[in-house]
Design a protein around this nucleic acid. Sequence first.
DNA 1: CATGAATGAGTGTTCATTCAT
DNA 2: TATGAATGAACACTCATTCAT
Lengths: 223, 223, 223, 223
Amino acid sequence: MSRETESMETIDTTTEFNEKQVAIITAAEKLISTDGFAGTSVRDIAHEAGVNVAMISYYFGSKEKLLEAIFEYRTSIMRIKVENLIQNEHLTHIEKVNVLIDDYVEKFMHQQDFHKIVIREQLIERDTVIASLILELKKRNLVSIKKLISDGQKAGAFKKNIDVGLMMSTMVGTVSHMISSNKFYREINHLEHLTEEEFQKHMKKKLSFHLKNLFKLVLTYES
Amino acid sequence: MSRETESMETIDTTTEFNEKQVAIITAAEKLISTDGFAGTSVRDIAHEAGVNVAMISYYFGSKEKLLEAIFEYRTSIMRIKVENLIQNEHLTHIEKVNVLIDDYVEKFMHQQDFHKIVIREQLIERDTVIASLILELKKRNLVSIKKLISDGQKAGAFKKNIDVGLMMSTMVGTVSHMISSNKFYREINHLEHLTEEEFQKHMKKKLSFHLKNLFKLVLTYES
Amino acid sequence: MSRETESMETIDTTTEFNEKQVAIITAAEKLISTDGFAGTSVRDIAHEAGVNVAMISYYFGSKEKLLEAIFEYRTSIMRIKVENLIQNEHLTHIEKVNVLIDDYVEKFMHQQDFHKIVIREQLIERDTVIASLILELKKRNLVSIKKLISDGQKAGAFKKNIDVGLMMSTMVGTVSHMISSNKFYREINHLEHLTEEEFQKHMKKKLSFHLKNLFKLVLTYES
Amino acid sequence: MSRETESMETIDTTTEFNEKQVAIITAAEKLISTDGFAGTSVRDIAHEAGVNVAMISYYFGSKEKLLEAIFEYRTSIMRIKVENLIQNEHLTHIEKVNVLIDDYVEKFMHQQDFHKIVIREQLIERDTVIASLILELKKRNLVSIKKLISDGQKAGAFKKNIDVGLMMSTMVGTVSHMISSNKFYREINHLEHLTEEEFQKHMKKKLSFHLKNLFKLVLTYES
DNA sequence: CATGAATGAGTGTTCATTCAT
DNA sequence: TATGAATGAACACTCATTCAT
C-alpha cells in the first residue's frame, strides 16, 4: 500500500525558491501558524530566519506576498492525487479509500505548521487571494473523492446516499482538530513519555485507523 | 427531545456585564472571529460597538482582558451538561448520545463567532489564560462523554474499545470545519437560494444527522 | 492707499485649527519650504513643532493631508480681492492697479515660506489636490485682474492689446524669483548690514515700485 | 538675428560623460524636475535610464554627486555670453538687449527640465555645492548684463537709474513662472489644439516679445 | 567593467494605553 | 462615570549605498 502512496506523491515542487527564501518561508510558517498573520511581525520572521528585515520585502515584496509564497510553496501538499488510484485495478474500492485517507493524514500531519495557517485563513470571511486558492483546492479535492466513492457505489461496494461533503468535513475536521489539540490528546492519553517524533507517528496511526473505520462503516453499513 | 435539550441549558450566565460591556464583547467577538485577535484593533471594536476607544481599557483593563471577558461571557456554551442526562431513565443509551450531539451542534452552531475564536486560540501553542481555560473545559467535557459511553458499554448497548478522544475530535472537528467552510458547503450543495437563517437551520439538521449516524455506527457495529 | 489695502484684507480665517495644529502647520511650512515635501520627514516636523510624531497623523491623518491643511490654512492669502477695488470711485484706474500690486507684494512677501511651497508644487506636473487648488486660484485671480484692466481699457486709460496672462506671469514670477533669491539680492545690493526685518521692508518697497513702474509703462505707453 | 544667437552658443561641453552617464543624467533630470531631489529615488532613475541601480553609485559616487553632475553637464546653458555681443558694432544697444533676451529665453525654454531643478534648488537656503554654483553663475550673468546696460546708458540710449537686479529678477522670474505654469498658460489661451512643439515655439515667441517690450519701455521711457 | 545580493538607517503610519478632566 | 487628547513603541516598508564577484 505504501508503494501506491509513494506513487501518488509525484513531487511537483517546481517552486523556484532559493535557500534563503525557503528559510524565510519556513520561519514565517512556524510563527504565523501559532501567532497568526497579523500577530507575527516581519521582524520576528527575519529574526527567526536569521536574515535582515529588509530581505523579506526584497525577496517577496511584502508580508502579504510572503504569505502567498508560503501557499505557493506548500500548495502541492493540499492537492489530493487520485487519478492513478482510481484506475488502479489491484485495489478494491474500500482499499482505495483507505489509501486516500492514509495519503491525506500523512500529508497534513507532516506539515502541521502550514495546515494551521490554512485553518486560520479559512476563518477569514473576506475574499482574499489565499481564500480563493483554498476554495479552489477544496473543490478539486471534493471532485476526486466524489469520483472514488461513486465508482464504489456503481460497483455495489458502497451504499447509496452518501453525503460526500459531510464525509470530507469529518475527515478534514478530525485531522484539523487533532492538529489543534496535539497537547490535549497527548495528555489525556498519557503519552508524555514519547518523543515528539514517536508521538506524531502514534497520532498518524491512530488517526488513519479511526478515519478508515469511520469511512468503512459509513460506506458499507446501512444507516 | 427538545425538552431535555432545554433542561440542559440551565443558563448560568452569572456574568456581571452591563449593557455597554456586552455591546463591546459582542462587537469584539464579531471582529476577532474573522480577523483574529492581533488583526483586530481596539479602535475597530470601539467603532463597531459605538463606544469610545478609551472605554475598552476603562471597562476591561486591556485588549487581552477583553478577550478573557469574551470567554468568561461565553464559557457556559462550551460546557456540555450531561449530569441530568445520565440519570435520565426514559432514554436509551444511544438516545442519550443523540441528545448530546444535538445539544453540542445547537450550541456551537448558534454562536459561531465565539467558536471561531476558540478554533483560533487552540492553534496558539503558548500557555495563556485562554488556552488553559479551553483545556480545562475540554477535559471536563471528555469526562462527561466518557461516562455516557462507558455506561452504554457496561449495559452492553455499545461495543468495547471506543477511543472517546478520537470520537470527540471527530465531533468537534466536523462541526468546527463546517463553521469554517460555511460558504464552501453552501456552494457545493447549491444552497445559495436559502436565507442565512434557513441555511443555518439546514446545516444544523444535516450535521446532527450525520454525527448521530457516525456515532451510532461506531458505537454499535463491530469494526 | 494703505487704507484700501487694509480694507481688502477682510480676514476670512474661518479656519478651525487649534493651537497645536497651527504649531504643526507652521513648522511644516518652514521645513517644507526649503527642503521640499519629500525631503521633510514627519519626525523633523514634529521635532520643529515640539510635538509627538504620532500627533501629525492624529491631527491631520497623513503627511499628505497636512500639506493640504497648510493650503487650507493659507489659501486666503492667495486670493486677490478686487471686488471692492473695482467699484471704488475715488481711485483712478492706474491707482487701482497699484493697490493691487501693493496688496499682492505685501501678501506674498509676508508669507514667503508658504509661497515657496506653492512654487515647488507648481513644478509637479502630476494632477494633485494641491495642483488643482493652485490652478483654480490662479484662474480666479486672472479673471479679477482682467476685469480691472479691461475697465481701464474701456475708459481709455490703458492701451489695447495687453496680454494679461503674461503680465501676471511677470508680477508673480518677479516676486517669486525675489523670494527665491533673497540672499543674492541682499548681497549684490550690499544690504548685509540691514536686519532681516529692515531688509524685507526694503525689498517690498523696491519690488512694489518696480512692478508699478512696469505695469504703468506697459499699460500706458505705446509699444 | 539667429546668426548672432548661434555665434553665442560656442558649445563648451567639455564634459567627459560617456553614453551611459548621459542616459542617467537625462533620466535623473526628467524625474527630479517634477518630483524633486528627495522625491526621486535612485531606483526610479535607474529604471528610467534603463541601467542597474548600482550603476549610479558606481559612476557618480552618490545621488548627491549625480545632481552635481547634472549641473556640471548643463552649466553652460546658464551662462549668458555677452562678450562678443558687447563688442559687436553692427547692433544698436537695444538690439543687443534683444539678442540677449532671445538667447536667454531660447536657452531656458529649451531645457526646461534642468531649469525646474534650478528653481527648486534656489529655494533651499542651506549652503550646498549646487547653491554656490548657482549663485556664482547669477553673479557673473549680472555683471554681463550690467555692462551691456551701462554701455547703453553711457551712450545715452538708455535712461539712468535702472535697477538691473530687479530687471534680471523680472526676466528670470517671468521665464521661470512660464515654465512652471505651462499648463495654465496653455489653458487660459485656449492653445490645447497645438502640439507640444508648436506650443513651445509659440510660448518662446510670446515671451521674447513680451520681455523685449518690457525692457525697451523700462530702458527708454522716463518713469 | 558591471551588477545581483544584501543591509542599516530611516520612512510614514498605527497601535494599545494613559491621563487630566 | 466617561472621554478627548496625547504618546512611546512598534509596525511594514523603502532608501541609498556597499560589496563580492
